[in-house]
Computed example of a mutant assay.
Amino acid sequence: MDTAEQILAQLDDAARDYRFADPEHPYSSAIDARLHVFRDDSRWALLIELVGYNPRAGNVVDVVHAYGNCLTRGRPGCENEDFLSRIDNMDEIEDIDNPEYLQTDGGPIEIRGRRVPVEAAAGDPLEDVFRLLVPSIVTCCWPTRMNCGVASRRTCRACSSSTSGGIGSPNGTTNCPARPRRSTSLPRFWRQVT
């Protein structure tokens, strides 16, 4: 296991290179954030997810930042593949004549295949509308996809979890330490830091 100084040095390096999670990024209006910390006796992973409305991307974007001593691709921070769009029907809800504003009363807004009504009126700023969705974002985004910061479900960036297994997968089964579970148990080799 790295020392606290080594862990902080990695986070400081990422911050100096503008690769550390920035909830006040000027291109994104913050909606929600999550921090996940995992470790065993020799490995650690810190995952920060920032969800925000990004008008330049034309969507609510979930940006996953991965740090640790067991990353399997890329540098600590986020890669292009770690910017995940979450709204499926932006073309239906954004007013084409008045961009960045809601087109119809009440949505509904489709988050990863699930239609969610929202108590908002046509003409409301999308930034405000999306913040009304925080409970839905929590139930639609976080529990079904964490996958350690990789858009692909085939390989986990933080632990190499795949059909052949990885850390946290004692019997070669897919058992990613950062994949949320309905139960509270984690793989026996991983302890979640609380």
Rank of each mutant, 00 (worst) to 15 (best):
A122T: 07
G106S: 03
N98P: 10
E110L: 01
R112D: 11
E110C: 08
S136W: 03
V129E: 00
E100Q: 13
L133R: 00
P99L: 05
R112W: 13
A121E: 10
Q103S: 13
D124F: 01
E127H: 07
P125H: 06
P117S: 02
V116R: 01
V134L: 03
Y101P: 05
E100M: 15
T104V: 11
I109Q: 05
S85T: 11
V118E: 08
Q103C: 14
L126R: 00
P117N: 06
G106N: 13
P135Q: 08
I96P: 09
Q103P: 00
P108W: 07
R114Q: 15
F130C: 01
L84S: 03
D124H: 04
S136K: 02
R86T: 14
D128S: 14
R131C: 02
E100T: 12
G106M: 05
L84K: 04
T104P: 02
I93Q: 02
R115Y: 02
D88G: 13
D97S: 11
R86W: 12
E100H: 15
P108E: 14
D124A: 12
N89I: 06
R131M: 04
R86S: 14
R114M: 12
L126V: 07
G123P: 07
V116A: 02
A122H: 04
G113L: 09
I96H: 12
L126Y: 05
E94Q: 14
P125Y: 07
L132E: 08
G123L: 10
V118A: 08
E94L: 02
L102K: 00
A122I: 10
V116T: 11
D95N: 13
M90W: 05
P99F: 05
I96C: 08
F130S: 01
P108Q: 08
T104G: 04
R112L: 13
T104C: 11
T104F: 12
N98F: 13
G113S: 01
G107A: 11
P135R: 01
P135E: 06
E100S: 14
R131W: 05
S136M: 00
S136T: 02
M90Q: 05
T104E: 14
E119A: 15
I109N: 09
L126E: 01
